[in-house]
Amino acid sequence: MRFDQRHLLGIEPLRPDEIGTLLDLADSYVTLSRRREKRSSALSGLTQINMFFENSTRTQSSFEIAGKRLGADVMNMSMQASSIKKGETLIDTALTLNAMHPDLLVVRHPHSGAVDLLAQKVNCAVINAGDGRHEHPTQALLDALTIRRAKGRLHRLNIAICGDIAHSRVARSNILLLQKMENRIRLVGPTTLVPPVLKEFGVEIYEDMREGLRDADVVMMLRLQKERMDGGFIPSEREYYHRFGLDAEKLSFARPDAIVMHPGPMNRGVEIDGTLADDINRSVIQEQVEMGVAVRMAAMDLLSRNLRARPTELSA
């Protein structure tokens, strides 16, 4: 039961046992969150700042609820409306914040590596809430928790990840995590969105969705990120839905007990059929949201324990 990280910047540096530790703790926070009285004092006295350089209502509120349930003082900063617009650099923003002595900094940024850069300049624990196309570790952890609870295990599963892999930080973090836990991963999508270089990560690539879903235990759909498209990755939404949209017919190639996941927000009728998304027997999309809060509670709890174990740094 160890968790030796100072920050949570990505899945890449985590060991399998650290992932297990975090998920175990998250399980207990699922229980806590389902009670009427949800408060814990794990983070009491600590200040949590959510710094979002990219809009995200869902992730930001999930982190906010997680922090508040653990008793932290939570502050949200929408960076688009602030000093960035006045030309302040990321490092100066970090140094300014650092002088206010936060303990946990939750950061989302449109550029890959920006959260790593920021973490080098502050004394507190930093959680990556998504940086460019790089990583989104808490999303992968909440997906892992959802799978583990639905399937009873997190290894030796056939997992199909479908859609826009090329532009997706969710896909990167999930591939890294699910490989660390020894699962078989297939990527499904058109070559423009699933570049062949991904084979070097030891995954299988399918352009035929039915083949890709065959005997899958888990079907993970990704959002078709329209805002990231330079234009022209796919011919049209309707052709995409025809070939790669998840419907009951395509899902029938997966195992009968296969679960359907989606990180949200969904484009109904583009990557997933609306009825299927709402089917409580197959879709675990609402559970994913619930697990998101629990995983973020666990991550912040573990990081704060490491934070409290370190001597207070006097220098700002």
């Binding site: 890959s112 590596g113 940086d131 460019g132 196309r133 990167r172 270089v197 990560f201």
Partner: peptide, 12 residues
């Protein structure tokens, strides 16, 4: 440059 490393780092 395109390749495994850039893919891992999520760089254009």
């Amino acid at each position: 440059t395109s390749g495994k490393f850039a893919t891992l780092r999520g760089l254009p």
